[in-house]
Simulated scan of single mutants.
Amino acid sequence: MVRDREPRPPSPERPLGHLLGRAHSRLTRMTAEALAPHGVDGHELTVLAVLADGEVLSQADAAARLGVDRTTMVSLIDGLEDHALVERRRSPHDRRRNLVTLTPLGEECLRQAERARRAAEHLFLAPLDEQTAAALRRALGTLVPEERPPVPLP
C-alpha cells in the first residue's frame, strides 16, 4: 500500500552566518581577482592604506593598528619591501624600532589597487539598487561598529 506523503514543511531560512560567510567568500574572491594585476592582496592593501594614513609608523605601531601580531606584520612588510612598495629605516630616536613608509611606487600601487577594490565592491553590490546597497552598508556598520575611524584612502 502506498501512503500519501505529507507535504514537507517549507525549508527554514538559511542561517545568517551561512549567508554572511558565503557573501564574504564571494566578495573576497572578487576582490582578490581585482587586486591581482596590482601585485597585492587584501591584507597588503590594508597595510599600504594604514601606512598612508599621514603619520610615520613603526612596524609595531602598524601591527597594533591592524590588530595583527608582530611576526605577521614583519612578513607583510617583507613582501611589500621586496616589491619596492615600502621602505624601512631605523628610528632616529630608538634604534630598535623600524619606521615604515610608502615609496612612490607604493603610493601609486595603493591608488590603483584601491580603485580596483572599490570597483570589485561595486560589482558585488550591483544586483542591489543604490538604496538597498546603502542600507546594507548601514546595517552592517551598526552590527560591526568600528573601533577606530576608518583609514582615509587617497
Rank of each mutant, 00 (worst) to 15 (best):
Leu80Pro: 02
Leu45Ile: 01
Asp61Ala: 15
Val100Trp: 00
Gly42Pro: 00
Leu140Gln: 06
Ala23Asp: 10
Ala135His: 11
Thr28Gly: 10
Leu136Phe: 12
Asp69Pro: 01
Ala119Cys: 05
Leu102Arg: 02
Pro145Phe: 06
Ala113Glu: 05
Val47Ser: 02
Arg115Gly: 06
Pro104Glu: 11
Leu110Lys: 01
Arg5Met: 11
Arg89Ala: 13
Glu87Met: 11
Arg88Glu: 05
Arg26Leu: 15
Arg3Leu: 14
Gly17Met: 11
Arg5His: 11
Leu99Val: 06
Arg95Tyr: 04
Pro9Ser: 12
Val47Gln: 01
Arg14Lys: 10
Pro10Met: 08
His18Thr: 15
Ala139Pro: 00
Arg70Ala: 13
Ala116Thr: 08
Leu45Gln: 00
His18Cys: 04
Gly17Lys: 09
Pro104Ser: 07
Arg115Leu: 09
Ala36Pro: 01
Pro154Thr: 07
Leu20Arg: 11
Ala116Glu: 06
Gly106Asp: 03
Ala52Cys: 03
Thr31Leu: 09
Leu85Lys: 05
Leu102His: 01
Ala60Trp: 04
Asp82Leu: 12
His18Gly: 09
Val100Asn: 03
Asp41Cys: 08
Arg115Ala: 14
Ala133Gly: 14
Glu33Tyr: 02
Arg96Tyr: 07
Met1Asn: 07
Pro12Ile: 04
Leu125Ile: 05
Gly79Asn: 13
Arg118Lys: 11
His43Val: 11
Ala135Cys: 06
Arg89Asn: 04
Thr132Asp: 15
Ser75Cys: 03
Arg8Gly: 10
Ala119Glu: 15
Ile77Pro: 01
Gly42Thr: 10
Val40His: 01
Glu107Leu: 08
Gly54Glu: 00
Pro15Asn: 07
Pro10Leu: 13
Thr103Trp: 01
Gln131Lys: 09
Leu51Thr: 05
Leu66His: 04
Pro154Tyr: 04
Arg115Lys: 11
Thr71Ile: 13
Pro145Gln: 09
Pro9Phe: 09
Glu147Lys: 12
Gly54Pro: 02
Leu125Cys: 08
Asp129Gly: 12
Ala113Ile: 05
Asp82Phe: 04
Ala133Glu: 07
Leu85Arg: 14
Gly17Arg: 13
Pro145Met: 09
Thr71Cys: 01
Leu76Cys: 04
Pro37Asn: 09
Asp129Lys: 05
Gly39Gln: 10
Gly54Gln: 02
Gly39Ile: 10
Leu102Ser: 04
Val47Cys: 06
Arg97Ser: 13
Thr31His: 00
Arg137Lys: 14
His18Phe: 09
Asp4Lys: 12
Leu140Thr: 10
Pro149Asn: 06
Glu121Asp: 09
Pro37Leu: 08
Arg111Trp: 03
Thr28Glu: 13
Pro127Cys: 06
Val50Gly: 03
Arg148His: 12
Leu19Val: 13
Arg117Pro: 02
Arg89Phe: 10
Val151Met: 02
Phe124Thr: 08
Ala34Ile: 08
Glu130Ala: 15
Ala36Arg: 15
Val100Met: 05
Arg70Phe: 09
Leu85Thr: 03
Leu19Trp: 01
Gln59Ala: 14
Glu107Met: 10
Arg65Phe: 00
Ala64Glu: 14
Glu114His: 15
Ser75Asn: 14
Leu143Thr: 02
Leu66Tyr: 02
Asn98Ser: 14
Leu27Asp: 03
Leu136Lys: 06
Arg29Cys: 01
Arg138Asn: 08
Leu153His: 03
Leu102Ala: 04
